[in-house]
Design a protein around this nucleic acid. Structure first.
Lengths: 158, 158
DNA sequence: TATTGTTATACTCTATAACTATA
DNA sequence: TATAGTTATAGAGTATAACAATA
C-alpha cells in the first residue's frame, strides 16, 4: 500500500500541532524572559543574518510586515535587538542582536533543546535517525514562501 | 556518527515551526470561516469525543481552562458547537458539534489536507513513507501531557 | 473543602488598511 | 510612482488570578 501525499498530509497535520504545543510551553519556561516562539525565531534569524532588514525577517518568519514591526518593537524594548536606520537607504532599518539578546537566545535555545531532547531520548537511535531524516525532507518543502511552489519567477505552471 | 537526542531536538525545533506556518495559513484560507489552528483542533477533538467536558478538551489540546473556555465561547457563537450543562453533575458541561460545525470541520480538514498534500506530492513515495513513519514515532511522545514523562502516578523517577 | 467552569486582566500573535518617509 | 516601515484597529491565543456554582 503506497503512502499517498494525502496520507502524509494527515499525519503531519495531526502531529505538528502536538509538537508545537510542547515547544511553546518549553520556550516559555526557558530563560528568565518568557520568549514566544516567533520572538525566539526572530532572534535566531537576526543572529544568523546580522544587519538584516525588517522585510527580510518578516518574509522568513512568515509574518506580515506590521506584525513583525510590532514584534520587533517588543524585542527592542526588552533590549534584545538593536534597530537602526540604514545609512544608504534611510527607508530601511537594520536589525542586530544586543549582547543581552545573544545571551538570551543561546540560553533559551539550549534549555528548549534540552527539554525536547529529554523526550526524544526515549526513542531508539534508529527512530531518531528516521525523525531527523524526515525533518531534512520536510525542511525545504516548508522553508519556501507561502505558496511559492514554483520557484522560478517566469514559469508559472498554469 | 549516532543521531543524538539533541541532534533530533535541533532538527525538530527548526522544522516544526515552518510546517505550522504553512498549516496556519492554509487553515485560515480553508472554508468560509477563518478557523484558527486551535479552533480546528478543538472541533476535531469534539467530533471524536462527543459529550466531552471542557477540561478534557483543554487537557488534550494543551490549553489552560480559561483559554479553552474563551475559545469555546467563540465556537458556540459561530454555532459550530453546542455547550450544555451535564445532567448528573451540573458543574460540568458537555460539548457537541452542530451539523454546521461538522460540515465546516470536514470541509476545512479536506482543503487543508489538500493544500499540504500538494506540497508533499513533490516527494518520492519513499520519502513520504519516511515522513509518515517519523510522525508515527513522534505522535505518542508529544500526545501526552506537558511534562508527563513518567506516566505512572506513583513512581517519581528520582 | 475540592472540583468545574467563567470572568477579569493583561500580554502576544496576526491580519488588513491607512499612513509616513524616502527613493 | 514605488518601496520600507509604522500606526491604527481588530480579533484570536494564551496565561494567571479571582470568582461562582456545584458536589
Amino acid at each position: 500500500m503506497p503512502t499517498t501525499p494525502k496520507d502524509t498530509a494527515r499525519a503531519v497535520l495531526e502531529v505538528a500541532p502536538l509538537i508545537m504545543r510542547t515547544v511553546r510551553t518549553e520556550m516559555r519556561n526557558a530563560g528568565v524572559l518568557n520568549l514566544s516562539v516567533p520572538q525566539f525565531r526572530t532572534l535566531g534569524f537576526v543572529a544568523h543574518h546580522p544587519q538584516t532588514s525588517l522585510s527580510a525577517v518578516a518574509e522568513h518568519i512568515g509574518l506580515a510586515l506590521p506584525s513583525m514591526s510590532k514584534l520587533v518593537d517588543g524585542l527592542v524594548e526588552l533590549k534584545l535587538v538593536l534597530r537602526q536606520s540604514h545609512s544608504d537607504d534611510r527607508r530601511r532599518i537594520t536589525l542586530e542582536l544586543t549582547a543581552r539578546g545573544d545571551a538570551l537566545l543561546q540560553s533559551a535555545r539550549a534549555s528548549t533543546q534540552n527539554a525536547l531532547a529529554k523526550r526524544l531520548s526515549e526513542l531508539s537511535e534508529s527512530e531518531r535517525a528516521t525523525v531527523v531524516r524526515a525533518m531534512q525532507i520536510l525542511q525545504p518543502l516548508f522553508a519556501r514562501g507561502k505558496s511559492d511552489v514554483c520557484k522560478d519567477k517566469s514559469a508559472g505552471r498554469s
